[in-house]
Structures are given as C-alpha cells and as structure tokens.
Design a protein around this nucleic acid. Structure first.
Lengths: 221, 221
DNA sequence: GGATCCCTTACAGATTTCCGTAAGGGAATT
DNA sequence: AATTCCCTTACGGAAATCTGTAAGGGATCC
C-alpha cells in the first residue's frame, strides 16, 4: 500500500474521518492532512525536494474562502501545481460533486487516477479507490456514470464569450453588436440564439437563467 | 457531559470524523450515528419510548437523495419531528451553510441550541458547542454574524426562495403558482416582478441574468 | 457534377421579461 | 375620521427570449 499520503480537505470533521479510516484500515506510514491548498502544495514540494515524495494526493475540489491569502484556491489548481512538481504522483479526488460534466475533465485533462463522490458510503469507496489506484487502475464511485451521452461537452471560447456576456446582463442584440465590434464571426443574433439553445439541451437547462446558474456553480464562467 | 447523543449526517467521512472526535474528547456513553433522517427519527423515537431518551441531536441540514424512499428529507424536518416527540431535547446543527438568512430562523423557529458551520475548525467548535449547550447556553460558530445580517443588503427568505426558483429555470408565472401551492403569500406575479426589480437596484444588476450570476458568485444562492 | 451535411442568417409567432401606472387595503399617525 | 405610507395586485406596452421554419453558402463525399 501507499507509504506517504497527503490529504487536502478544508472541513475538519471530514478530514479527520478520512485520516482515521485510512489509518485503521491500512496502517500507512505517513498520512498528512492539510486544510489549505497552498499548505498542501508547500508540503508536497518540500517532501519532493528532500527525496521523500508523497505517493498519493487525496484532495477535495472546492475550498472555503478565508482571511488567509490564497494562491491556490481549488483542488483543480492544486492538482496542476503538484503535477508540475511530480507528474507521476497519483491523485484521488474526494468531493461532493456528482455531475459527470464536471468530473470527466478531471480524468481527461488533469489525469486524475480516482474519483470518490462524498456520500453515505464514501469512506468505503475511498478505501477501494486506494487499492485500485495502487495497482495503476482508475476508480470512480459506482453511482457516477461518466459514459452518459452528454458527459463530454465541448464548450469553446466562443460559447464562453457569449455566456460571460449574458451573465453580465448583455442582451443577445448587444452581444451581437459586441462581437461585430471585435470582428468576430459569426455574430448574428440568430446564431447566438441557436448556440445558447444548443447549450440548453447539452446541459439540461430550461432557459438562460437556469443555464447561467448551472455553469457558474460549476465554475465554468 | 451528555450521555446519549444521536448524530444525523449523510456523508460517511464527516460522520466518522465527528463520532471519533467526540469519543476521544468526552468519553460519552452512547453515540449513535445515522445516515438518513428517517432512521435517526426512528431511533430517537424507540429510545424515547423505552425510557432511555437521547439528550442531544447533532444534525446536518441537507441530505443527499437516494434510492431509499424518505419521509424526512432535511435536518429542519428532522428537528421538528424529534421535537414533536421530546420538546426538550437539545439540538445542534452542523452544516456548511453560512448564510445568516438561513441560520437565523433555525434559532427563532426551530429553537435549536447551537449552530456549527462546517469548516477548518468546526470539530473544535462542535466540542465548544457541546459544552455550552450542556450548560443551557446557545452556541454559534464565531465566523457567523447573525446580527449583521441586515447590515449588508437585506435579502429575506422570501426573496431567496424566488431567486432560487429563478435560477432553476422557473418562470415568474410558475413561481407564483409554486408559492400559492405552498400557501405562501404574497404570491402574485406582479409582486414577484416588483421584488426582483428592487433587487436589480440593490445589487446593481441590469437584468435577471446578471442578478443571478452576481448572487451565485457571492454564494448567496 | 450532384447530393449531402453543417453552419450561418433571416424571419415570424408565442411566451416571458421589464417597467411604468394605478387601484385597493391595512396599519400607523395626526 | 382623515391623511399618509407601504405593500399587494392588476394591467398594458415595449423589449427580449425561445422555438420552429426556411433560405443560402461552403465543405465533403461519391
């Protein structure tokens, strides 16, 4: 089993629960917990420099804000940072997010090794995940279905620009004019309409309000 | 210290963290954990009937849905149910909610005895809360400011309900109907219009898209 | 060359939003 | 009792959104 594990999780009770469970189950030599991404990153870096690298990072996705200035504010940023130091470190994400749209890119872009969805059985799942990842396999909580038809949604820069403008209160007519002013094509009101309507289907949104709310909550806008 | 404690919390890791921490700190005779509100309620009821009532309920506010049919689906409902059995039982809520607008009614309506906001110090706060509540005092996590609720922009539960519905894609006509279905007044489309328009001014939003985006980014919805 | 597919754009109609005006009712004040 | 204030509600019109249909253009394939 892994000998050195680093845990980044900002809720103290959850953090303790994970540490206790892993220690009881595996008798791992060194489990270190951190409440902040930055502190986790520093600890990871120092250990790597000293030739005693962590073998596994278990991290949450979202961290509460705090009075402390933070450079890394999300699990995604933390993963990218530690992979910048040690591209081979294993990563398991432990979060309450259950939306495949959000989880899938973690595997394809961040190349994480496991995803555990917090819930009524997540400690047991985390233990399973450790064993799978240890043997170079990936793990995903069984209730998550990554193969869902729309799980990979391509949202390019163009779509993003429109959605950002919408969320800032511009009407589609205004957005059309803004695109023309930037010499960006296509830019007709009709096309913008179509683009947004297509996103309704892909994200399962009833209307623009719903779509904006979903995307902001997912941190995509 | 309390001798019998019941914990309702659906995340297994959090659940375990709390139980371990309390057992380490207090050596309480009986700590029982449940992952579902209904199960917690049943356990509470049986213990009360047998003349061995729980003295304290520690509960989360929101519970994940599951395949199991659930009668009680929220901490609020659970609190009301157990208070129906034993009006004097102490209650501490342990949740990630940090919005005073949502927390305040728990004290005024549900008469809870303590509120601990999940975070980087919440296990220690929970221990403090237990000691305070044990001595018939109330406890609130220090970072929560229940009095300053109005110092920012007053947004009451009613406004919140409307905005949440809007962000979920309901039209104002639908929201009007939903309010009527819940016997909540006022509920006319016109009034909802006015409420939202007032929020445009207060938050400096151009339209509903903009307002929803701002509020979600501020974590108010 | 012709058929096909996809993207852009225009347009039209139904619905919804946004905003102003105004009427009515209840509570408080004078 | 009368006035004032605030909240709720109704209504109407302009603007915006949402949805479907259709025309045109470019790229690809046979």
């Amino acid at each position: 089993m892994f000998k050195k594990i680093l845990i980044a999780e900002d809720f103290q009770d959850t953090n303790k629960g994970i540490v206790d469970a892993l220690e009881n189950r595996f008798h791992i030599e060194s489990i270190q917990e951190e409440l902040y991404c930055d502190k986790a990153y520093n600890r990871f870096k120092v250990a790597f420099m000293n030739g005693e690298p962590y073998e596994l990072l278990i991290t949450d996705l979202y961290f509460k804000e705090s009075h402390v200035d933070r450079r890394l504010t999300s699990g995604k940023a933390l993963i990218e940072a530690v992979r910048g130091i040690d591209p081979n470190v294993k990563v398991i994400v432990n979060s309450m997010v259950d939306n495949p749209v959000e989880i899938n890119p973690l595997f394809t872009d961040q190349k994480i090794n496991g995803y555990v969805c917090k819930g009524r059985n997540s400690l047991n799942e985390l233990i399973d995940a450790l064993q799978e990842v240890r043997q170079n396999r990936t793990y995903v909580s069984p209730q998550i279905n990554l193969n869902g038809a729309n799980s990979i949604i391509e949202m390019d820069k163009y779509d993003l620009m429109i959605l950002k403008d919408l969320s800032e209160g511009y009407t589609k007519k205004e957005i059309s004019a803004r695109l023309r002013a930037k010499n960006i094509s296509p830019n007709s009101e009709s096309t913008i309409d179509k683009k947004v309507s297509r996103l309704f289907d892909e994200f399962g949104a009833k209307n623009t309000h719903h779509l904006i709310a979903k995307l902001i909550k997912q941190g995509r806008i």
